[in-house]
Simulated assay, not measured.
Amino acid sequence: MIVKFVFDRCASLIGLILLSPLLAIISILIKIKMPGGPIFFCQRRVGQYGKLFTMYKFRSMTVNHCGSSVSVAGESRITPFGAKIRRYKIDELPELWNVLIGDMSFVGPRPDVPGYADLLQGKNRKVLKLKPGITGPASLKYRNEEEILALQVNPQKYNDEIIFPDKVRINIEYLENWSFWKDLRIIVYTILSKDLDQ
């Protein structure tokens, strides 16, 4: 996967340079519209081989909120401006830095908070061989995950029993059938907000 390594480093550097004006504007707007807190949301996530790393996102929630690791559309801890940048995935742009320094890849499973990796058993533990990604086949299928969870009586239970196992299945399939061209297709489909089966 040398080509994936080179692509991740080069594309993330170019992306950070080209998007620097947008990153600066979003940073300013966060300070204006969500004062009293940091610009970035930093959280420990599980990376390749189960190693923890710090993931960076634009902050989209209130400071010192009490909530679960599962985000649901419309919940009060998400600010109005935060909801907008989450809708268009702008809050995830700082993850380009994670890709540049090697913690993440453009394509791979979304990085989970500690605890979920402990649920992986048998063949499913193979998913830890992958670097977490900004996007991936499971991310495309569940790009409206917050809206799906908002319809559930118990969002946490639905995530743990339905969505999480399905994501693991999809990511194992991605690992076993990986190709660079499939990665490029996933990136393009992410930009176009299309499903992989379209």
Rank of each mutant, 00 (worst) to 15 (best):
M1A: 14
M1W: 11
F7W: 04
F7D: 01
D8G: 05
R9W: 10
A11D: 01
L13T: 05
I14Y: 10
L16G: 09
L16T: 10
L18E: 03
L23R: 00
A24L: 15
I26D: 07
S27D: 01
S27F: 01
I28D: 05
I28R: 01
I30D: 00
I30A: 02
I32E: 05
K33T: 00
P35A: 06
G36Y: 03
G37P: 01
I39D: 01
F40N: 02
F40R: 00
C42S: 08
C42F: 03
Q43A: 04
R44I: 12
R45T: 03
G47T: 07
Q48D: 08
Y49R: 14
Y49S: 12
Y49N: 15
G50P: 05
G50D: 08
F53D: 07
T54N: 12
T54H: 06
K57R: 10
F58Q: 02
F58D: 00
F58K: 03
F58C: 02
S60W: 03
T62D: 02
V63Q: 07
C66F: 03
G67H: 02
G67T: 01
S68C: 05
S68Y: 06
S69L: 13
V72K: 03
A73K: 12
A73L: 06
E75T: 03
E75N: 08
S76R: 08
R77G: 02
R77L: 01
I78C: 05
P80E: 06
P80K: 04
F81P: 00
A83Q: 07
K84V: 08
I85S: 00
R86W: 01
R87C: 02
Y88F: 14
K89V: 04
W97H: 11
N98D: 14
V99E: 10
V99D: 09
I101C: 14
S105G: 10
F106Q: 06
V107Y: 08
G108V: 10
P109N: 09
P109A: 06
R110Y: 03
P111I: 06
D112V: 12
V113R: 10
P114M: 09
P114N: 04
G115Y: 00
D118F: 00
D118R: 07
G122H: 10
K123Q: 12
N124P: 00
R125K: 15
L128T: 07
K129H: 12
K129N: 14
L130D: 08
T135S: 14
G136E: 10
P137G: 09
P137C: 06
A138G: 13
K141T: 12
K141R: 15
K141I: 12
Y142D: 10
Y142V: 04
N144E: 14
N144F: 11
E147F: 03
L149C: 08
A150P: 04
L151Y: 07
Q152M: 15
V153S: 15
V153T: 15
V153R: 13
N154D: 15
K157F: 04
Y158F: 15
N159W: 14
N159V: 00
D160K: 09
D160I: 07
I163F: 02
F164S: 02
V168T: 08
V168W: 10
I170Y: 06
I170A: 00
I170F: 02
I172H: 03
Y174E: 05
E176Q: 11
N177D: 13
S179V: 11
R185D: 14
R185Q: 13
I186V: 13
I186Q: 09
Y189P: 01
T190P: 09
L192C: 11
S193G: 12
S193M: 12
D195F: 06
D195K: 14
L196M: 15
D197H: 14
Q198I: 13
Q198L: 13
